[in-house]
Computed example of a mutant assay.
Amino acid sequence: MSFVNLVSGGLDSTLIGVMAKEDHIDHFPLFIDYGQRAAAKEWATCQSVHRQLGLPVPTRMDLSGFGQVIASGLTNVSMDVKEDAFTPGRNLLFLLMGSAYAYQVGASSVAIGLLAEQFSLFPDQRQPFLVQAEQAIAAAMGRQIKVLTPLIEFGKADVVRLATEKGVAGTYSCHTGNSQPCGRCIACLEFQFNEGE
């Protein structure tokens, strides 16, 4: 078995890579620049953290035109990074591109770092979407490419705990792309919310 790991330089996707390395599972990290505000910071962090942890060198896919047309708080600085965070089609884009890359490199699956459903805010983070996406991908590719969600039983507190145990450090998860986390985007708030668990 081998899989494409959709990576962002963040804690969740980095932890998936570390777990795969420990289990000696071949994986192909894929960073997608979809025109997100944080793309430059995420990509730099992604490369750095993969180097530090001895993970495979990530491949970057430039789809930045997506974010130029599909405006959200994640792609457009004039919109609110938290209130306007939903980016229509983003996770489907990730899974489709990850699956196309999996097809290309001969991998059987694509992994996305979604957490337990009670922490999901958007329809493209939930099980019905994942099932239907997998079916659509199989129809599009002419063969099954499994969608993996290795962290789906976890809350952010669980991820932080496990990542700390495994020595994962230096990741970046803020949606603004600023050097200091903003403290109010969904990614930042996940950490704050789970600190109290």
Rank of each mutant, 00 (worst) to 15 (best):
A40F: 14
S8L: 08
A44L: 07
A157W: 09
P88N: 14
M141L: 15
P181K: 13
I186D: 04
R37E: 01
I112L: 15
Q47G: 02
F119N: 04
A133Q: 05
V168T: 02
P150N: 04
G17Q: 04
G17I: 03
I16S: 03
L95W: 06
V131Y: 14
V160T: 06
R161A: 14
A136F: 10
I112P: 01
P123G: 08
S108L: 01
R51D: 11
N5E: 12
P58K: 04
P181H: 08
F31G: 05
A187I: 13
D23W: 08
N194F: 14
K41D: 00
Q118W: 10
G17V: 00
A38V: 04
Q52N: 12
I70A: 08
T14G: 01
M79I: 02
E83W: 04
I16E: 09
S64I: 07
L30C: 05
C46G: 03
E197Q: 14
D80W: 00
I16Y: 05
A157T: 09
L96R: 02
T59D: 14
H24S: 10
H175W: 05
Q52H: 10
G142R: 03
E22S: 02
F86W: 10
C182P: 08
R126T: 08
V49W: 04
L15C: 06
L30Y: 03
Q127N: 00
S78L: 06
N178V: 04
A163N: 03
R126G: 09
K41E: 09
V131R: 13
T14C: 09
L55V: 01
L130R: 09
S72K: 05
E117F: 13
G142I: 11
S109N: 07
I145F: 00
Q47V: 13
C185K: 02
V49N: 01
P29V: 00
A169P: 01
G98F: 12
G17A: 03
G35M: 11
Q125Y: 05
N76A: 11
G142T: 08
L15A: 04
G177K: 10
C185A: 09
V110N: 09
C46I: 06
